[in-house]
C-alpha cells in the first residue's frame, strides 16, 4: 500500500497506523528498517554512519537533560512548561530511535551522562531559560545540517533531515515566545 493511494497524507497515516498498529513516524520506520537493508544501502560504511548517529544521540540525550533542568527550574509559566515538556518528548523520541538504529547498524549507542553541566547560575527568569533552549535548538539544527551530507546511507540523511525540521520548529517557537522574529532568515547554516 502506497501513501500516494490515499486522498491526503492524514488519511494515509491513519490507515497505515491502523493496519500496522504502529505508533511510529515515517522517519522512525525508515530508521528502524531491517539491519540487512541498512547495511546493504550503506555499502559497508555502517560503522561510519553509526558514528554520526552516536554523536547525534549524545546531543539528543543532553537536550532531554537540558529541558529537564528548565522544567525543574520553577521559572516557567504553565503553558511554557507544557511546551518544554512536549519538546523534551520529541528529543526523547529522537534519542530512542537513534539508539535503536545504531544497534541495528552493529554499533553501541552512547549512554546519557551521569551529570551534565549547564549554565544554571545564569538562568534567572523564563526568558533566560527560553533563550538557553533556543540556542541549543539552533545549534542542533546546524549540527544536523552538518551531518546530513555525511551519511553513506541516503535514507539516514533523509531521516536526519526530518529531525532537523522538527528542531528548527522548536527553535522558531522558542524565538517567538521570546518576542523575537521566529524565522529570522530564509536559510539556516
Amino acid at each position: 500500500m502506497s501513501f500516494f493511494a490515499f486522498s491526503s497524507p492524514l488519511v494515509a497515516r491513519r490507515a497505515f497506523l491502523g493496519k500496522s498498529g504502529l505508533a511510529l513516524s515515517g522517519t522512525a520506520i525508515a530508521l528502524l528498517a531491517g539491519r540487512d537493508v541498512l547495511a546493504a544501502k550503506a555499502g559497508g560504511s555502517t560503522a561510519a554512519d553509526a558514528g554520526i548517529l552516536n554523536t547525534a544521540l549524545a546531543a539528543e540525550l543532553e537536550a532531554v537533560a537540558a529541558y529537564q533542568v528548565g522544567a525543574e527550574s520553577g521559572l516557567l509559566e504553565k503553558p511554557v512548561l507544557a511546551l518544554a515538556g512536549q519538546f523534551q518528548g520529541h528529543h526523547r523520541e529522537h534519542a530512542d530511535v537513534l539508539a535503536k538504529t545504531i544497534r541495528q547498524l552493529g554499533g553501541k549507542p552512547v549512554d546519557a551522562k551521569q551529570k551534565y553541566d549547564f549554565p544554571t547560575r545564569g538562568l534567572k527568569n523564563q526568558a533566560d531559560v527560553l533563550r538557553f533552549a533556543a540556542s541549543l535548538e539552533k545549534g542542533a539544527v546546524s549540527a544536523y545540517l552538518g551531518a546530513v551530507p555525511l551519511f553513506r546511507n541516503r535514507d539516514l540523511s533523509k531521516a536526519a533531515a526530518s529531525i532537523l525540521g522538527d528542531e528548527a520548529m522548536h527553535w522558531a517557537v522558542l524565538r517567538n515566545a521570546l518576542g523575537e522574529n521566529p524565522v529570522p532568515s530564509a536559510f539556516v547554516s
Binding site: T55, A58, A59, E62, Y116, D117, F118, P119, S135, L136, K138, G139, A140, V141, S142, A143, Y144, G146, S189
Partner: peptide, 15 residues
C-alpha cells in the same frame, strides 16, 4: 559560533 552550540560551549564540556 551559534552553529557550534548544538554540541559545544565555551566554558564547559558538552557533547
Amino acid at each position: 559560533y551559534s552553529r557550534c552550540l548544538g554540541c559545544h560551549a565555551l566554558d564547559y564540556d558538552r557533547t
